[in-house]
Write a protein that binds this DNA or RNA. Structure first.
Lengths: 246, 246
DNA sequence: TGTACATCAGTGAACGCGCGTTCACTGATGTAC
DNA sequence: TGTACATCAGTGAACGCGCGTTCACTGATGTAC
């Protein structure tokens, strides 16, 4: 249950408990700094200061600034994916399309609540930092994979129009066919194409709102507009018009 | 023709010419630094260094770092909008839907060519900097307004389905109705809703690609996938399926 | 055309700041006998 | 249960760096007479 860095399963001593505690506090302060000042401004020294530690002490827990960023990146991806999973599970009896809407709503809610952490995940890359793929792609693709799983349900249920409204260029079709194999999914490339459009709508809609592209008070209810955008994209998958599921 | 800072129209002297020249070089170096290191790392000192100037000399031309960022922001918005306008004008005889595709293509091409400047416009906000609306909203909304103008053409031509595939919540409809008035456009709120979806697809699709969310080599032809996404969104506007215009 | 003065571009030094990272160190906690 | 040694958390000083901004200054360009 506890992780003590080795393979022994002895109960953790005082030292280990304190170590876990401090590590958790470093992450917590890092999260707060991310939220307040953004990723580019994240500094080990200021995190240390907030913890009442001398800056060099942090190196006992974290290899350096980049490592801290990686931890926070994984942390944010995980928290977001957990929120999305919770939203879809809470509506387990709803049809797949309704659960897609719940997932999108949960993603937006998290992004609005945590704009700087959302920016870390889906905004401009942090200058001078490149995420280690082997540690981030897993957590970083959980949300899309959930979306794909929901759409796969729709395919299985026969809800999904095999043909999209726009033709797919052969080279694009080949790319997508390769991607479905890599993802281990049994869906048509044209369906995957529309799922990428759905994903683009979700990330685009949230980014436009969270990054402040809509004027200060152009929309009083941006969440409703977002839901409409997503619902429209989902309708494109089914090929049918009609009221979206609650 | 020349701007000499006053209302006289005397021909510019040596001093003014040199001043314009240095100002232009500051912007050019700023652009290059933006492209290479990103906005958060933009510094007056390094720009001065590259120009062979002492850092304080730059203050003769620019009030400070934030002012330089604002100039570069307007510069980038303008260059992007010019590229989009050029692309649509070059295809002036094409139907409106084809010109929407051309516009989207041009936007993506510019973003791929200038990822850091695209990030400045549509990525995470720069920490500690807030753009002065009175100087940036004009250039910053040119592309969307072009898009809206093209769609307005479609409305006038009777190409556009008044009813979208998904119902629009009353509060969202009210928001959008207010926005059409502000924009001075005579289009139905449901149409504007779908245009915002189109815009979300464009920004979302480009951001996902440019910000590196697609794996290193998941797609060999991301441009084709993008065009399919946009074409699909345009089809949602017309409410008709069929091959998209060339 | 020539001279006296005003304007302005660019210099160089300085202020005060924060950053990441290394390193030799003290003192507390854990472990083996 | 007690002692000797190993491990590790945290300290404090230091290195070397870059940043934005101010300020008194020199020397060149422009302007008015």
């Amino acid at each position: 249950m506890w992780h003590d860095g080795g393979m022994s399963s002895r109960p953790p001593g005082v030292r280990q408990l304190r170590r876990d505690d401090v590590t958790a506090r470093i992450l917590a302060v890092g999260r707060a700094h991310l939220a307040e000042h953004g990723a580019a401004a994240l500094s080990l020294r200021s995190v240390a200061r907030d913890l009442g530690l001398v800056s060099s002490a942090v190196y006992r827990y974290v290899a350096g600034r980049d490592e801290l960023l990686t931890l926070l990146l994984v942390d944010a991806y995980t928290e977001l994916a957990d929120a999305v999973d919770a939203a879809t599970s809470a509506a387990a009896d709803d049809p797949w399309a309704a659960r897609v809407l719940h997932a999108a709503r949960a993603l937006r809610a998290w992004a609005v609540r945590e704009p700087a952490r959302y920016a870390l995940l889906y905004g401009s890359p942090v200058p001078g930092y490149s995420a280690p793929g082997e540690r981030t792609t897993g957590p970083g693709t959980r949300v899309v994979r959930r979306l794909l799983a929901l759409v796969a349900e729709g395919v299985a249920a026969g809800d999904i129009d095999a043909q999209g409204p726009a033709p797919l260029a052969p080279a694009a079709r080949a790319d997508l066919a390769r991607a479905t194999v890599e993802l281990g999914l049994d869906i048509d490339p044209t369906v995957l194409a529309r799922v990428t459009m759905l994903w683009a709508v979700i990330i685009g809609g949230v980014s436009l709102e969270v990054f402040g592209q809509y004027g200060r008070d152009t929309f009083s209810e941006p969440g409703l507009l977002f839901e409409h955008q997503v619902a429209t994209a989902v309708q494109v998958l089914t090929g049918r018009a009609g009221p979206p599921p609650a």
